Amino acid sequence: MNNDPANQQKKVRQQWDEAAANFDNEPDHGLQDAHVQAAWHDLLMRLMPMPPAHILDIGCGTGSLALLLSQMGHDVIGSDFSVQMLTYARYKLTSAGYSLNWLQMDAAHPALGKTQFDVVLCRHVLWALPQPQYVLQRWQSLLRPGGRMVLIEGYWHTKAGLHASDLLAMLPDGMESTTYFLSDNAALWDNTVSDERYAIVAI
């Protein structure tokens, strides 16, 4: 029973539901400090196309990046496996005056039609998904011609995560990529970090 996929999914959802209330306490999650928020704003400006773009924020958590992107003039759909994360995200965006569409779904198997989005954005989720190379192929199918995946990931001191070189090797054939290394940008994390943090834009 412990290996039953439905039971495993239930446990994962419960884990993130329980984490939702304190999720924004991490500086790079809640973006509550002005200098951290400004650093993420500047990074997203570099990674995204000119607004308005139609963006799917996969694993959006409490919606901090979705809010920044909406403020930039993008059309954002947020998705997450956790109902509680989405509850906090809805409140955050509504309080700021934005009304967005939200989807509760499995990031590894998005229940969406193909070629809908200019951008598929994922921050710190891909590393935790099974068979990420196949997940990337599914995400690519969601992109319109000329669309891009923006993948913000890392390999942390806990030995969890994905090295940039490994993620690059998983990209679908034919995609061209640019890597931005982020470890030396302390403002993003509100702290100096020594582990590997990066963003990959794949088109």
Rank of each mutant, 00 (worst) to 15 (best):
C122V: 15
C122E: 13
C122Q: 13
R123I: 02
R123F: 06
R123M: 03
R123V: 10
R123A: 07
R123E: 03
R123N: 08
H124K: 12
H124R: 13
H124W: 15
H124M: 14
H124Y: 15
H124D: 15
V125G: 01
V125R: 10
V125A: 11
L126P: 02
L126W: 11
L126V: 15
L126I: 15
L126M: 03
W127Q: 15
W127I: 00
W127E: 12
A128I: 10
A128F: 11
L129K: 10
L129E: 08
P130F: 07
P130H: 02
P130E: 04
P130Q: 05
P130Y: 01
P130G: 02
P130I: 01
P130T: 00
Q131G: 00
Q131R: 11
P132F: 13
P132R: 12
Q133V: 02
V135K: 12
L136F: 07
L136Q: 11
L136A: 08
L136Y: 05
L136P: 09
Q137E: 15
Q137G: 03
Q137L: 12
Q137C: 09
Q137W: 05
R138T: 04
R138A: 05
R138Q: 13
R138I: 01
R138F: 02
W139T: 02
W139G: 00
W139M: 05
Q140S: 10
S141F: 02
L142G: 05
L142D: 04
L142S: 10
L142Y: 04
L142A: 08
L142R: 10
L143A: 02
L143I: 05
L143D: 00
L143K: 07
L143Y: 07
L143N: 03
R144V: 14
R144H: 09
P145T: 12
P145D: 13
P145E: 14
G146C: 00
G146Y: 05
G146E: 04
G147W: 12
R148M: 11
R148H: 05
R148A: 14
M149P: 03
M149W: 01
M149L: 15
M149K: 06
V150G: 01
V150D: 02
L151D: 05
L151K: 11
I152R: 02
I152W: 13
I152Y: 14
I152Q: 04
I152F: 06
E153T: 09
E153F: 09
E153K: 06
E153I: 07
